[in-house]
């Protein structure tokens, strides 16, 4: 079974790190493939032996800079098909805008079930065509069985009560480059790449430091209204 884990260019997020760890722990005859679509640097993977990454595949295209999650999702879906994936795993906020739509676009395009923010995953020994996962939804912490093929997203992994132990790091596999022409994407779609940030106004935070609540309040009072 091929499991495709979508990873970012450059340093990867903690949600993607969780995706690699969970996929690596699946067990069984699984091949884990990290997939990155980028116009920038290659992914900086801090791999442990448990992650069991077999391949690192990069699709390079200059127009990917800040491209629309709809286009990126379709591209990843085409690449997952090309790699014969039975399962695609992504970080829960894995687009450059942090909205978390990419997994949903991949799911819609492939018509596979989507479950967001899984906390665990393992192959079901009794029914090898499904994944068992733990997930929180609607006030319940549920253990569920998700039929394959499927799309799963992972929440960022935070340390539980202290520094997380990182195992021995291993070198990533050699990068394989996948030409975008081989993925069967339409030229119209590539030409539709747009940057939705043109509709967004941004306001940067100003960080204040203080030594006490009283000090903090006093500093706040000195700031003029926006």
């Amino acid at each position: 079974m091929n499991v495709v884990v979508c990873v970012e260019s450059g340093p990867i997020s903690r949600a993607t790190e969780a995706a690699l760890e969970l996929a690596g722990g699946l067990g069984g005859p699984t091949e884990i493939v990290a997939l990155c679509a980028t116009d920038g640097p290659e992914p900086e993977l801090r791999l442990t032996r448990q992650m069991r990454l077999s391949r690192l595949v990069v699709v390079r295209e200059p127009r990917f800079a800040a491209c629309d999650p709809y286009v990126m999702g379709q591209l990843l879906a085409c690449a997952a098909n090309h790699l014969h994936a039975s399962m695609v795993v992504l970080g829960s906020r894995s687009d450059v805008y942090g909205s978390g739509m990419t997994g949903a676009v991949v799911a819609k395009f492939l018509e596979w079930p989507l479950v967001s923010r899984v906390e665990s995953m393992r192959l079901d020994a009794a029914w090898p065509t499904a994944i068992i996962s733990d997930v929180r939804t609607g006030g319940r912490h549920a253990r569920i069985q998700i039929p394959l093929p499927n799309i799963l997203t992972t929440a960022p992994r935070a340390p539980a009560g202290g520094r997380r132990r990182i195992g021995t790091l291993v070198a990533p596999p050699a990068t394989e480059h996948l030409a975008i022409e081989t993925l069967g994407m339409s030229h119209e779609l590539l030409h539709s790449i747009r940057n939705p940030s043109t509709e967004i106004e941004s306001f940067a935070d100003k960080v204040i430091t203080a030594v006490s609540a009283a000090d903090l309040m006093e500093k706040l009072m000195r700031i003029p209204p926006p």
Partner: peptide, 9 residues
């Protein structure tokens, strides 16, 4: 510092 606030703009 000991206490930091993000904001307020």
């Amino acid at each position: 510092g000991n206490i930091a606030l993000c904001g307020p703009r």
